[in-house]
């Protein structure tokens, strides 16, 4: 059983978020974690192709665009993670037979990319005004060679670590909606990382709240 030793504080890199920056999509947001940056845009509820329509829910489609080259299998698996998280928190039954499209464009990857995708997706969904039952955020933890837990690792830290885990955490009860892990780790380490992510998610949710408050601060 590995114990987490050393400092009792882990850090999240500096965040930035900008909403409604594109004029065509219904909702757009750019999310920055340190040097990792993602641009998210949503369209919907809009027309759906008959082959893809679902009679009682909206069809959610997530597209992840890499910076160089065409989307590959890695992007498909990331899309699946983001889609499952969004489907858990959106109220899809309010818009049956319509389509919701979420497009995520990678701007720069410096580690913790899946959690940045999740955070940008959540902010874009809030900006579009789609009905949600809860918010979600993504937190990445890495376990380095000494057994220390590092949150929000950079690309260099991810390369040297033994395991990298990303969790999507919901805002109401801080439970894990989705997890994606890579590497080997013990059950105890997993639970510790989940606990750390839940703590980190509080900061992120507070940031969401502050940015939305700032957005509505002007009385029009």
């Amino acid at each position: 059983m590995m114990e987490v030793c050393g400092s009792s504080n882990v850090t999240l890199r500096e965040f930035g978020c900008e909403q409604s920056l594109l004029s065509r999509p219904d909702g757009s947001a750019s999310f920055i974690q340190g040097d990792t940056s993602v641009l998210a845009a949503t369209y919907g509820p809009a027309e759906v192709k008959v082959s893809k329509e679902i009679y009682d829910r909206a069809t959610l489609e997530v597209l992840i665009q890499p910076k160089v080259g065409l989307p590959s299998v890695r992007q498909r698996s990331q899309e699946q993670c983001v889609r499952e998280t969004c489907e858990a928190s959106l109220l899809l039954s309010l818009h049956p037979r319509s389509s919701l499209t979420l497009i995520l464009q990678l701007i720069h990857d410096d580690g913790s990319i899946l959690s940045c995708f999740l955070n940008a997706a959540c902010m874009a969904l809030i900006d579009a005004g789609l009905p949600m039952s809860c918010l979600f955020c993504g937190v990445t933890c890495a376990i380095d060679a000494d057994g220390q837990i590092v949150t929000d690792p950079t690309a260099a830290q991810e390369k040297e670590s033994r395991a990298v885990m990303t969790f999507a955490i919901d805002s109401t009860e801080r439970r894990v909606i989705m997890s994606s892990t890579k590497g080997s780790f013990s059950v105890h380490e997993l639970q510790q990382c989940i606990a750390v992510s839940q703590k980190a998610s509080e900061k992120i949710f507070q940031f969401y709240r502050d940015s939305v408050k700032r957005r509505y601060s002007k009385t029009l």
Binding site: E3, V4, S8, N9, V10, T11, L12, R13, E14, F15, G16, C17, E18, Q19, S20, L21, I149, T151, H188, Q191, Q192, I194, A195, V196, K199, A200, K203, F207, D210, S211, R214, R215, S217, K218
Partner: peptide, 20 residues
């Protein structure tokens, strides 16, 4: 007003091991 930035913050990990 549509943009907000937050500096590097630390996450408390005091009771993480006990919880785990």
């Amino acid at each position: 007003i549509t943009a907000l930035k937050m500096d590097e913050t630390s996450v408390e990990m005091t009771d993480v091991t006990e919880r785990a």
